[in-house]
Amino acid sequence: MSGASVLYDVPGPKAKVRNRVYTVLGGLAVLALIGFVVMRLNATGQFEPERWDIFNNAGVRTNIRNGLLTTLEVFAVAAVLSLVLGILLAVGRLSDHKPVRWLATGFIELFRAVPLLITIYVIWVLLLTNRDALGLSGDQPQFWALVIGLTVYNGSVQAEVLRAGIDSVPKGQREAAYALGMSKTQVMTTVLIPQAVRAMLPTIISQLVVTLKDTSLGYIITFEELLYTARLMSTNILVNGEDTYVPFIIVTGSIYVAMCLALSALANWIERRGRRAKTGIGVAAAGEPVTATDALETAPPADVPADAKD
């Protein structure tokens, strides 16, 4: 919403006064809400210096750093694998061979429909029961359960995103490539996929933000990533005989929000850059990764700009 909105007039003298009154009232209401939370935090002693002094402890900081690195490691591996899987599944779903197409479609629909947490949990149990046969030790079952779970779920979503991108490439591109005598594989790898990736890059990155957020599900299968580390420390480190949930949650929350905002900013930047370019097909809008997690919509969900539907 920029400058003058269509939803209300440019305020006249009376409306200006009224708006000012509402501004004060609204401001007070927001302040009251924040004030209430701060007051309660203060009343329960969350702002006492000793509670925050724990972050001066080198061990605590090392633990947070290790947790953060573990989270990033899971994210990096899962992101790469999910993109690879996404490309494979998208190509499989567009294949000319029926069994391949059915297999890819079934895989995508199944793993998009099941909550990620349940997928991760089931893989974890499977890995735990077969840990000796697979030669996994320590926290490797958790790590691989998280990575594989994130990969199959996000790979399925990325496949749908890519498929929407491939469908958005003008038909003439494919026909021209075939007319030049290219094989099916060549058309896919040198003509369609590069253009699809370029068009869908903002959506792909938005889905990577979801991947990053979902690494926190490792908490539930007791994998020592950032969130679990923080939770563990907050129950173990007692100040004045009380746990330290609030400081730890504020710190880890800020870290997560900062990481996700950085990635989203990248997506928005690419989208804006893509819109400036006059060549090639349009770049999809960033954001709305949630529409890409739809389980059943077979039509490309995230690629339709909001104003194109009308």
Binding site: K213, D214, S216, L217, Y245, Y256, C260
Partner: peptide, 10 residues
Amino acid sequence: NTPLTLLFLI
């Protein structure tokens, strides 16, 4: 931008 698990913890 907050992981849902973190919201649940809160």
